[in-house]
Design a protein around this nucleic acid. Structure first.
Lengths: 234, 234
DNA sequence: AAGATACATATTGTATACAGAAAGAATACT
DNA sequence: AGTATTCTTTCTGTATACAATATGTATCTT
C-alpha cells in the first residue's frame, strides 16, 4: 500500500468518523497518533488536516492543533436557516442538468440506502443517505453552491446522528418516508421536473426538521412531574 | 519579520494578485519562486497553497502543482445562476442580525470605496468593492452560506476586472450607481429592513449583470463592416 | 522521416530533524 | 496557604534532505 493510498485512507476514515460522530464535535485530533496509525510522517497528515479544514470537517487553530468542527447552537441556527434554500436550489438544478450516468449512480446509491435500512447500523444509514444527496450535488454541479451544500451535508449527518431515537416508532416511519421521497426525487430528476424536485426538497427537508423537533420538543410527561415543561424554540 | 508574518504576507499577496488578475486564471504557481520571494521553505508555502485551494482561489492537482482557479464558461454560467440567490440571502441576513460595530466597519469600507473611485486604479476599486461585500458576509455570519459567498466574491472581482471598459461613459455611470446602492444597502441594514436589503441585492446584482452584457453584447458597428454581427448569448 | 522508447531533468510528495510556542509542574516568594 | 515565576515537557511550525512521479529530450527502430 503506497503512501498515497494510506493518505487517502486516512482522509476517508476521518471524514466517516466525523460524519458518524465516532469523532465528536470539538474533540482534538492527535497528529502523532494518526502518523502511527497510518504509517505516515507528519507532513502528509498535516496536509490532510488542512484539506479537511477547507471542507468544513475540522478547524485548524494557530499553534493549538486541529479539532473536529463544532456544532454550536449558533451553527444549528445557521443550518436551519440556510438548508431549505440550498437543498431546493440543488435539487432544482439537478433536475435541470443531470446526465443519464449520474441518474444511474443515484439509483444505485438509493438501493444502498434501502439496504442500509434493512440491515445496516445507524451510521451506515447516515453515510448512505449522505451519499445519495452528495450525488444530487454532483448533478447540480454548481461550483458555488457545492461548498455550502457539502458543509450542510456534513452537519445534516451529524445532527441526524445526534437526534436519532432508535426506539421511536415515529422515527422508523420517518425513515420509510425518507426512502419514498428519495424514490420520488429520482423520478423528478429523470423527468426533468424542476418544480417537483424543488417541492420534494422542501418536503424532505420538513421531515428532517420534524425529526429534530421531536427530539428537542418531546411529548410532555403527563403533566405529573411539575417542574418539567416542554422547551420552546428560541 | 517572523516566518509567520512572511507566510501571511504571501497568502495576502497571492489572494490580491488573483482577485486583480495579476495572476491570470489557469496560470501556474511556482512553489520554489514563492519560497525564494518570501524567504520560506517549501512546507509553509505548500500549506498556504492548500489553504487557498480550500477557499477557491487555486486548484491543487495531484503531482501537477498548483494553478489559479479557472474561469471557464461553465463556471460563468454557475456564477450567474447562483449569485442572485446568495447575494440576496446574505444581505437579508445582514439586515436581520448585523451589530453596530459591523455597521461602522461597513461605512468605513464604503468611504474607502468612494475614495478608490476618485483616485484609485481599477484594481483598487475591485478590492475595495470586494471588501465592502465581504463585510456584509461577515454580518450575515452564516457558516454555510459564507463559503459560497466568498467564492462568488472572488469570481465577481475577476469577472469585473475582465469586463471593465475604462473608456465607456456607461461604465463610469455604473460605478456611480453602484456607490449609491452601497449607501442604500448600509441604510437598509441600519434600519433592519430585510425586504429592502434583499431588493437592493437584486438591483446591485442587475447592475453587474448589465456590465457583463455590455461587454459580451456590445453595440453594433453601424452595419457597415458586413461580417461583424452582434454576438448572441448561448 | 515518423513514431516509440529510454534516459535526463525538473517538480512534486514524504520523511526527518530542528526551532519555537503553549501548557503543565515544580519551586520560590509573599 | 496562596500566588507568581521559572523550568520542563509536549506539541506545533519550519527547514532540509530524500524518494517518487511527471515532463522534455535524445536516440533508436521501422
Amino acid at each position: 500500500m503506497s503512501a498515497k493510498d494510506r493518505k487517502a485512507a486516512m482522509s476517508a476514515e476521518i471524514r466517516n468518523a466525523i460524519l458518524t460522530l465516532a469523532l465528536e464535535p470539538g474533540s482534538d485530533l492527535d497528529e502523532q497518533a494518526y502518523c502511527e496509525a497510518f504509517d505516515l510522517s507528519r507532513t502528509p497528515v498535516r496536509e490532510v488536516f488542512r484539506e479537511l479544514d477547507g471542507q468544513g470537517y475540522v478547524e485548524l487553530r494557530e499553534n493549538r492543533g486541529t479539532r473536529v468542527s463544532d456544532l454550536s447552537p449558533a451553527k444549528l441556527r445557521d443550518f436551519f436557516l440556510s438548508a431549505p434554500m440550498i437543498y431546493a436550489a440543488i435539487l432544482r438544478l439537478a433536475a435541470r442538468i443531470a446526465d443519464p450516468s449520474q441518474i444511474v449512480e443515484l439509483e444505485r446509491s438509493q438501493a444502498a440506502f434501502k439496504e442500509s435500512l434493512r440491515i445496516g447500523s445507524v451510521a451506515d444509514r447516515a453515510l448512505a443517505n449522505i451519499r445519495f444527496h452528495e450525488i444530487t450535488g454532483e448533478m447540480a454541479g454548481n461550483a458555488y453552491l457545492l461548498p455550502s451544500f457539502r458543509r450542510l451535508l456534513i452537519d445534516h449527518a451529524r445532527i441526524g446522528m445526534t437526534f436519532y431515537q432508535p426506539q421511536s416508532a415515529e422515527m422508523t416511519g420517518n425513515l420509510e418516508t425518507a426512502s419514498l421521497q428519495h424514490d420520488a426525487i429520482i423520478e423528478a430528476i429523470r423527468n426533468r421536473d424542476e418544480a417537483r424536485a424543488a417541492d420534494l426538497a422542501d418536503q424532505h427537508w420538513a421531515l428532517s426538521r420534524d425529526q429534530f423537533e421531536m427530539f428537542v420538543m418531546p411529548g410532555g410527561l403527563d403533566g405529573r412531574l411539575g417542574e418539567i415543561r416542554q422547551p420552546t424554540m428560541a
